[in-house]
Design a protein around this nucleic acid. Structure first.
Lengths: 361, 361
DNA sequence: GTGAAAGCGCTAACAT
DNA sequence: ATGTTAGCGCTTTCAC
């Protein structure tokens, strides 16, 4: 009966039917270990032991308890349990938001986690735009709920956690926190060189989040490639894009409105490159005919643009996988805790349709 | 120093440097409300009141406490707090894994959540392949940690939670649980009709997860379109694909190895369509020349295939947004709790390059 | 305005 | 083999 409902036009809100009056248990108290104990006629401790398969419980008591548990649908509270225990078998990932980068990273992390006994909890932090969220969340979660945490693109890293922490794409290059990142410098160099090879000389750069090491290294790669090609650096060709579509709108417009407009733009990530594409279209510029564009990341969305975006692949999923591996190792082998691993993953240029060779003037 | 490290070849494990011996606080006890109280020379209760901005604390005590909190870097434990309180201001999403569908849904949910005061916790459930995980997790989390939960593609729905629950793409059509889904029937009809219009008559169907209403309705749409066109239904042309690439491998091969091979295949989701593409290539079949393929979902990955996949868009992100809206409404207005909303979002055909018109025989 | 103490659901020592 | 009890970090009566 539900599926034949006419759709609400274009995903607008408003529930279009409200037919069944249901008890969805607003008042139901959750069933606790105490309820089970009482019903089974044993003590709480016995139930706990039965649940956790400890020694020293008679088989028939175990059976009785199991029976009651099934009957009542009891499941121990993760919260209460993790308040008491140190170990929870849960790995936490703190992402600054579920954007394409974060989503890809989670896919990789989840895949790596399938081979472990750990479960995955994701905490989306910067949803409401506060900064310093990672420190807050870290102390809110650490020591409880998770056995270790992966921090994604953290802005601050004065980590003082009770449990192991691994950073992906961190604020600083070297640090006391194990980290995973990509060959940002080399990737940016390759991207810029690609444009140079196509004959471009006025190449704009839409920079990333200046608080991230990755963004700084991408800019360094851009400058280095320019210098290597003997192209003098023009500061008006650099604008701060901030890694998101929204924050890239104005700087993209600025770049494309320059009197001496660049013939190509290298954006520090795909999201800002996509915004460049959009702005170009609004300005009546055709890509790649009037403007060549290169991004960085190779998020799935970069293949959906028109034209498909040439970009630098940094296999985001591998970053997630690798972070999980390091973290699991840290959790299972506390003796190795003193060693701080920094892993750098390769990047590679993916040529699609957003660049063209410049005719000689 | 880290970034100049050579990369480990192709994302292989192995940390390639372990240079800094760091104290990352393995032994640090977490700083608790007690530590703050002691340092500030007040009682725990006072600190709690100061933190939660309750009345009845003198301004100078508040200042003193704030000062110590900053100094010690104290942050109240979410776990301890949620054990005591009912309200946590956290919404939980239970996904069966972080696959492209789950990831898209999270993007939409996160976006909708920006406009609320809630924070987002994602729990990835079926990572280790157990079934019935949603019931387990629901009772493990509900009543604590979250104020409400969104269940994605749940297999069972005997929900007996202490807090509101919304289901996305649920097991059953109508139920006592508020739900959000897409026009699965209509979308599948449109996809099949598209193939029919192109002249195809032998159209294979790679079915989805049979425990999901959405999968059943997509099959119904396929059959209905066939019937409308007067094409007799051939049961050998239907294989169960199970919505994942792995589980689609054998059935795709079966379909494509048929003596009277179908000229087109409609797969119940993009992941299985992508597997059809792959299998076709392995068999030396060219898409769309030898075989036309249509998927369902329009995940970003569907644009990255070669050729780009024609598919049915169900705006997965909107499903997530809508689920958040319904859930927030349920949490904030408990009085409306009796009403069970079922929202259905529209689907539309996205024509790309994986289908071709069949010449008349 | 502030402190002492109970208790949220659970596990682990310590009895019996 | 089972029960009693303390306590994880926190909020909230109830006293003072």
């Amino acid at each position: 009966m539900t599926s034949t409902n006419p759709a609400t036009p274009s995903g607008n809100a408003a529930s279009n039917s409200a037919d069944i009056t249901a008890d969805h248990g607003r008042d139901h108290r959750r069933v606790t270990i105490g309820d089970v104990a009482e019903r089974a006629g044993v003590s709480i401790a016995t139930v706990s032991r039965a649940v956790n398969q400890k020694y020293g419980v008679s088989p028939k008591t175990v059976d009785k308890v199991r029976e009651v548990i099934d009957e009542l649908g009891y499941e121990s509270s993760l919260v209460a349990r993790s308040l008491r225990n140190t170990r929870t078998n849960v790995i936490g990932i703190l992402v600054p938001g579920i954007d394409p980068f974060g989503a890809e990273l989670l896919k990789g992390a989840a895949r790596a986690m399938q081979e472990t006994d750990f479960e995955l909890v994701v905490y989306a932090g910067g949803l409401h735009g506060e900064s310093g969220w990672e420190r807050r969340y870290l102390s809110r979660l650490s020591g409880t709920l998770t056995d270790g945490i992966i921090l994604v693109a953290p802005t601050v890293l004065e980590v003082d956690a009770t449990h192991p922490v691994v950073a992906v794409d961190p604020h600083l290059g070297a640090s006391t926190v194990p980290s995973v990142d990509s060959q940002n410098f080399e990737g940016a160099q390759a991207a810029t060189r690609h444009l140079l090879d196509l004959g471009h000389r006025r190449i704009g750069f839409l920079a990333g989040r200046s608080d991230l090491e990755s963004a700084r290294r991408r800019e360094a790669g851009y400058r280095s490639a320019l210098a290597d090609a003997g192209v003098s650096f023009d500061p008006t060709l650099i604008q701060a894009g901030g890694f998101t579509e929204e924050t890239s709108e104005v700087p993209a417009l600025t770049l494309l409105s320059l009197a001496d407009r660049p013939t190509a733009i290298f954006a520090a990530n795909d999201l800002s490159a996509i915004q460049v594409l959009r702005t170009a279209t609004q300005l009546g510029l055709s890509v790649p005919d009037d403007l060549s564009v290169v991004g960085f990341d190779n998020i799935p969305e970069s293949a959906m643009t028109d034209p498909p975006l040439t970009t630098v692949d940094q296999s985001i999923q591998s970053l997630g996988e690798e972070a999980v591996r390091i973290l699991v190792d840290l959790i299972e082998r506390p003796d190795r805790a003193g060693r701080v691993a920094h892993t750098t993953l390769p990047t590679s240029l993916v040529v699609r349709k957003s660049c063209r060779r410049l005719e000689q003037p």
